[in-house]
Write a protein that binds this DNA or RNA. Structure first.
Lengths: 338, 338
DNA sequence: CTGTTAGCGCATTCAG
DNA sequence: CTGAATGCGCTAACAG
């Protein structure tokens, strides 16, 4: 089947390309009758405008790029869900890029996106990223950027996050109130905003309760999860006095769970765990895991809303548009999912 | 900062646009010296080609569309992971669209994609889809399509699936060998390939073991998972003789688990469950769930490979290129008991 | 080896 | 209200 384009329609209708184009965009300078004729034929021939020609001409792609570390983390899956919803509502398309927490990959992706493939970018920073020159250059290229979850405050733009500091504080307090004496904190890269903030909450909660801070009880996870479980086991073996664990990310929470089972530490009798997790099925773990659940869908949705608003009005995204949503500390009992 | 484009580079270098273009594409009809000069300036100015201009001209977008029911299902998250990997290796981009199992949405997405936004489509059919005219029209538009997981055999193209029939058979046999007398099957839409095939495996296993088929023991799930748990509970209440359940999709497997806990049915003493699931953390459920795990990443990767190969060679995708990968039946052991 | 020319399909001036 | 003409940025055919 021939590609049906404006020219095709125009010839068929005995009109000019310009008029057809205007009619399809519901321009007020086209007669109602003509509009109707054009639309009828377009519908009949199932005309679809060529998105790239249009993008080239208008200098906007109706597309946003989503750059995340991975998609197999339930937080990001939920966030994408929210992002896609917001995008669809505004007639935007969503390109997905995975960094696998690798700085080089993140930089390459960002660099490429400066070619105009997207009108804006949603980014959750890779844990391997230190240097942020690639992000600064986005400003020059005039491509709006909105951070979500894993942010960098050095870049002057909006950030959509959860109350990481408070969550870390409350998680730690929860363990303290449950009687824990030696609470370890497992985090990912401390250079990452979420790791840093959650850790600060942990520190302050300890201080507020007059507990000493023991650096040996802080473990920074790696990319490799097998290795993480090993590291956790080592930690637990070398410090049998640990009776509480705050795990800053899902992988580490689940890893801790595994490690405890492996070592025969009973939960929650011997050791109590609070972990970040957006996996609904943790409610089926037994013993149940106390979790901090983030409003992942809403984070994605909000971040996309902010970005799209800026894109549509061709305005910059301001740091003042940042949003902080609340996580929930949930002591799971059995509940229905979804 | 001004957008740096070919014209810009050409002026700066005192060359024609065409030469610059050729140099950047490493054309053999450009002198090495010129190439070097061009590349140096391009790198210095961080030139990024405008993808849409190139797409328009070449009539190919270097982009594939992935159309799936949802992303919050771990199977699809893993599949996307594989797809992104294959795409990146070939320099392709990935657009994500979610149907939420809604036919109208799927049709609208497919229709839109005929506008040339993508060079090919990977599709996992929505459970709400019956009519497939929208998919047939892709052939006319000359856009290659590869199905994965949820396929429709009426369309003559490649399908990447798991051995659903065998999995259903083995799951049922597993329950029979464990001594179950009344085995229920929970599936989604029977019009969906995976539901249909898994169900056929269930039926044949029953027959092979000389067991009668009781239609009352077959439950078709809905979109709404809350409702599914209710339906499962009703089924279990009305048929207390059920002592085995084969759940065809992750949601229903987890839902069954919930329902059993709710009703106080002990697993596996009172009732045994085998369910499809790609969620690694099911190993932490207690009592553990016997699962059928699909090679989700590989499915995505394979499907993308087949599609990209066709796209690059501008050849049609043939049904004969279909691939069937094997699922694994895993009896999880609770590590806590050791 | 390099430059000139001609579009890809569309949106938008500027004329009428 | 409609048409003719222009160019978005890039590639490719055709000259030289």
């Amino acid at each position: 089947m021939k590609n049906v384009n404006l020219k095709h329609l125009a010839e068929e209708l005995g009109l000019s390309i310009a008029t057809v184009s205007r009619a399809l965009q519901d321009s007020h300078e086209v007669s109602a009758a003509t509009k109707e004729r054009v639309r009828a034929l377009a519908a009949e021939l199932r005309y679809e405008p060529n998105a790239y020609a249009s993008s080239l001409r208008r200098n906007q792609s109706k597309t946003i790029g989503v750059v995340i570390p991975k998609v197999t983390n339930h937080f990001f899956a939920l966030a994408i869900n929210g992002i896609e919803e917001a995008a669809r509502q505004s007639g935007y398309h969503v390109l997905i890029y995975l960094t696998h927490d690798d700085y080089a990959r993140e930089a390459a992706i960002i660099q490429h996106l400066k070619g105009g493939r997207v009108d804006g970018i949603l980014l959750s920073v890779a844990s391997g990223t230190e240097d942020i020159a690639h992000l600064e250059s986005l400003q020059d290229a005039n491509i709006p950027l909105v951070f979500f979850d894993r942010v960098r405050t050095e870049i002057a733009t909006a950030r959509v996050t959860t109350n990481d500091y408070e969550s870390g504080y409350r998680a730690t307090e929860h363990l303290l109130e449950a009687g824990c004496q030696h609470i370890a904190h497992l985090l990912i890269s401390n250079s990452l905003s979420i790791g840093h903030n959650r850790h600060q909450g942990y520190l302050d909660a300890l201080a507020a309760h007059g507990r000493p801070y023991d650096p040996d009880l802080v473990l920074a996870g790696t990319i490799d999860n097998q290795r993480n479980v090993q590291l956790i086991e080592e930690l637990l073996r070398s410090r049998p006095d640990i009776d509480g664990i705050f795990a800053s990310v899902e992988r580490l929470a689940v890893g801790t769970y595994h490690a405890c089972q492996q070592l025969g530490r009973r939960i929650p009798e011997d050791i109590k765990i609070v972990g970040f997790s957006n996996l609904e099925s943790v409610s089926l773990f037994d013993p149940p895991l106390t979790t901090i659940t983030q409003p992942a869908h809403d984070i994605g949705y909000e971040a996309a809303r902010i970005l799209l608003q800026a894109v549509e009005k061709k305005r910059a995204v301001l740091p003042s548009q940042s949003v902080v949503l609340d996580s929930e500390l949930v002591q799971r009992r059995s509940t229905a999912t979804e």
